[in-house]
Nucleic acid binder design. Structure first.
Length: 780
DNA sequence: ATGGTGCATGTTTAC
DNA sequence: TAAACATGCACCATG
């Protein structure tokens, strides 16, 4: 198959036929790829790692020998057989995509794992696959070079004696680590090459490797194919000792060799699952080499926009920078969007602190928060940096009981990738029912964690992880506030705010628009649900605090915090708890509406892009001035205006002085009033413009539709009035709008649009812009 | 007043 | 114990 000694050989995959140079050194089944693969000084082969891909050659083409620190030049320039040495020695041929990955300690102190996965489907069956395995078996079964006792000893110790023999019938056992406790870390698993375009089932002599492995170690079949060797003596996040027999969906793998001589801490090891890699590589149609990852701190995820990079990672994988100002660094996210960050450093205690600046938009677009993880990968060849993300599973325990931390590595979702919840949870908490977790949407990750019941998996790594990241859960209040559940609760709380029962609003007029101010702070009201009838009519539902029966209420009803049937002044037939409930069908609608409402709220909170300042202002101001329903949420529509704005809201209502103090006259020219006027003017202009655009589109579509309808229904009939209705002016407003606009006219541009159905936003916007409605009509 | 920038400092972690 | 890292904070620019 190939030469045992140093020299040219064929690729591991015989069907590939590519040739490369192989150097067997000190008994390690390693070395190939380049002529300059040996250290000039110490002759160490396995202690050096060379990157033969274009990226590194373009970057520097130099690597350091771990032993003597002498720099080596990679002499392999984009050869047909492009070989990459992963950290600790992963080898793969990108020509045939046959992957051989082995992991070994640089000093030869740790066990070697040699695993492989035929990456390409062509290797998964048929002769090519067999030949591939034969080649690898041959690798193990090569005669030892004289003086290769280290390798022999090691192989024997690790139970690879079978591989030292030509007979490789027990190839599957290579995935069977020693079961003795003394060797808990010998995790034999399938390895995937990061740049693999596909993840096919490996074949061992015609049998799938998974199948073979499953005979002796069933979890392998379920396990991530990316499982690789973990350090034996230390707890590695995501790869706890003693879990070698449990499925590991997300296991940190040592990243590819970087520029620096130092090694990344395991916490920064990229912990991609196969699916993540597959999806990323699939999305981008590229070969992905995971580099490192980092759990976002509060500072990283905060508005400051600075992501602190692990020093070793920055120096290993990012371009070298000598100036503190750094350089712009383009990083592509998994969706293909390219971001430009400033990669720089600060002097820090005679060292450096590396940061990526300007990450806020990216972080926000990925909807990341403290505790989530960002991952950095590299595209090979080419070297483009890829930034991915993985959402953390925030557990309910994080807020107090301390059983788990908020940054568990039991992540549940990834940006651009889809986690397999079954494998994840099965790996850490076998007691968990996988079915329970299937199909749960990402935003319900909290629930997934809850389904753990707050149990602690007796997992040393978790304890370690907890210790490592406890600062996030314990110290970071922002993280707590960003907890999904808290956020929803916060929003719900906003919607429950009511004016104080005794509060009498005072009215402030700014540019003919009236604002209500309350002397009393808002109070909490009772939560209700709004539903729509088929006719479009809306109604409000509330549950009695005594009998829990649902009562139908007017849509504009505002309920106090405690409300019972006896308070039902709108329906005398159901003003007592003895009165029967509404029909079952109606109640189902209510409950469904309630669920959908909450679901919609959660979804909106997750997907909502941070609005621009003006947009926020427009929305808030629109709501404030017009009393409309933000986002068409009818629940909001019935709350009073000012109290529902959030803390920090900069809308024209919220920047008003405290109620009852300093009422401003319409002619007031103070800072607040001038700001209010200016903002409102800008708002109106923007609104006009937007509305104009919308109306043009709507008018065209509606005109077309009505034209068709008219032709069909009223063929041959001439009607001047209808002709008027078909005019462009009328088409600018839908029937609801027409009514509202008229109402607005009559009531001097006062708000009249609250409590309308889903289109309420558009209605109220138009209604609130009654001043501009005429202009719109004229314009259209 | 607010937000950005650069650095300092306290805390955590690896050795 | 030193390095790494998270974050606080002073200073400055800008609106």
């Amino acid at each position: 198959m190939f030469e045992v000694k140093t020299g040219s050989k064929v690729c591991m995959n015989a069907s590939c036929g590519s040739t490369s140079t192989v150097e067997w050194k000190k008994g390690w089944p390693l070395r190939s790829g380049s002529l300059a693969d040996l250290c000039f000084r110490c002759g160490s082969a396995y202690e050096t790692s060379l990157f033969c891909e274009t990226f590194h050659l373009e970057q520097s083409g130099w690597r350091d020998c771990y032993l003597c620190n002498k720099r080596l030049h990679c002499g392999c320039i984009a050869s047909k057989l492009m070989v990459e040495f992963m950290d600790y020695g992963g080898v793969g041929c990108t020509s045939c995509t046959n992957c051989h990955q082995l992991n070994l300690n640089k000093r030869g102190e740790n066990p070697v794992v040699f695993s492989r996965l035929a990456m390409n489907s062509q290797h998964t069956n048929g002769e090519s696959g067999i030949s591939s395995i034969r080649s690898e078996a041959d690798l193990f079964s090569q005669p030892l070079v004289p003086g290769d006792d280290k390798r022999e000893e090691f192989m024997a110790q690790r139970g690879f004696a079978n591989f030292m023999k030509p007979d490789n019938n027990n190839a599957g056992e290579m995935h069977e680590p020693s079961s003795t406790p003394s060797q808990p870390s010998l995790n034999m698993a399938l390895a995937t090459l990061p740049y693999s375009p596909s993840f096919a089932t490996p074949v061992v002599d015609g049998k799938t490797l998974m199948g073979a492995a499953s005979q002796s170690q069933s979890h392998i079949g379920q396990c991530s194919a990316s499982s690789i060797l973990q350090k034996p003596s230390k707890s590695v996040p995501g790869t706890p000792p003693g879990t070698s027999k449990s499925a590991q969906a997300r296991i940190g793998r040592p990243p590819v060799e970087g520029r620096g001589k130092g090694h990344l801490l395991p916490r920064y090891w990229p912990k991609y699952t196969d699916k993540e890699l597959q999806q990323i590589s699939g999305n981008l149609n590229l070969n992905i080499v995971p580099l490192f990852e980092k759990t976002l701190s509060a500072s990283d995820a905060g508005r400051i926009g600075r992501l602190v990079l692990p020093k070793a990672c920055a120096e290993a994988y990012f371009p070298p920078i000598s100036q503190s100002e750094g350089i712009p660094l383009k990083i592509q996210d998994v969706r293909g969007k390219e971001w430009t960050f400033q990669f720089r450093f600060w002097p820090n205690n005679n060292s450096r602190m590396y940061v990526l600046e300007g990450v806020t938009p990216c972080i926000q677009s990925m909807m990341l928060q403290a505790g989530d993880t960002v991952t950095f990968s590299r595209v090979d060849p080419g070297g483009k940096l890829i930034m991915g993300a993985r959402k953390a599973a925030y557990t309910v325990d994080m807020q107090g009981c301390g059983l788990t931390n908020g940054t568990s590595n039991e992540d549940t979702s990834s940006s651009g990738v889809t986690e397999n919840p079954t494998s994840i949870n099965a790996s850490s908490c076998p007691s968990q029912t996988p079915e329970e977790l299937k199909g749960l949407p990402e935003h319900l990750s909290l629930k997934k964690s809850e389904m753990n019941g707050g149990r602690i998996c007796d997992d040393p790594s978790r304890v370690k992880d907890k210790k490592r990241t406890r600062t996030i859960g314990a110290k970071n209040k922002r993280l707590l506030l960003h907890s999904e559940e808290l956020r929803v609760t916060w929003e719900e709380a906003q919607e429950l705010l009511r004016p104080s029962p005794n509060a009498k609003p005072t009215v402030v007029v700014v540019e003919d628009h009236e604002f209500e101010e309350f002397d009393e702070p808002p109070v909490f009201g009772k939560r209700t649900i709004i539903t729509s009838r088929p006719s479009g009519e809306q109604e409000r539902w509330a549950s009695c605090d005594d009998c829990t029966k649902w009562r139908r209420l007017p849509v504009d009803a505002l309920l106090p915090a405690k409300w019972t049937c006896s308070d039902n002044v709108w329906d005398v037939s159901r003003c007592s708890c003895c009165a029967p409930e509404e029909s079952l069908k109606d109640l189902e609608n209510v409950l469904r509406a309630g669920k959908e409402y909450k679901k919609r709220r959660i979804q909106a909170a997750k997907t909502e892009e941070e609005p621009s300042g003006l947009d926020a202002l427009a929305s808030a101001a629109s709501a404030a001035v017009l009393g409309d329903a933000l986002g068409g949420d009818s629940e909001v529509a019935t709350t009073t205006r000012h109290p529902r704005h959030r803390v920090g809201c900069s809308c024209i209502v919220c920047i008003q002085p405290p109620s009852g103090k300093g009422r401003h006259k319409p002619t007031c020219g103070c800072t607040v009033c001038s700001t209010v006027k200016r903002r409102f003017k800008t708002l109106m202009m923007r609104r006009k413009k937007k509305q104009l655009e919308r109306d043009e589109i709507a008018a065209a579509a509606e005109a077309y539709e009505e034209h068709n309808n008219k032709e069909a229904a009223e063929q041959g009939e001439t009607d001047e009035n209808n002709g008027e209705k078909e005019g462009r002016i009328d088409l600018n407003c839908d029937p609801y709008n027409r009514e509202d606009v008229e109402a607005v006219k009559e009531e001097s541009k006062r708000r009249e649009c609250s409590g309308v159905a889903d289109d309420v936003l558009g209605l109220t916007e138009l209604g609130g812009e009654a001043a501009s409605c005429e202009e719109l009509k004229a314009a259209t």
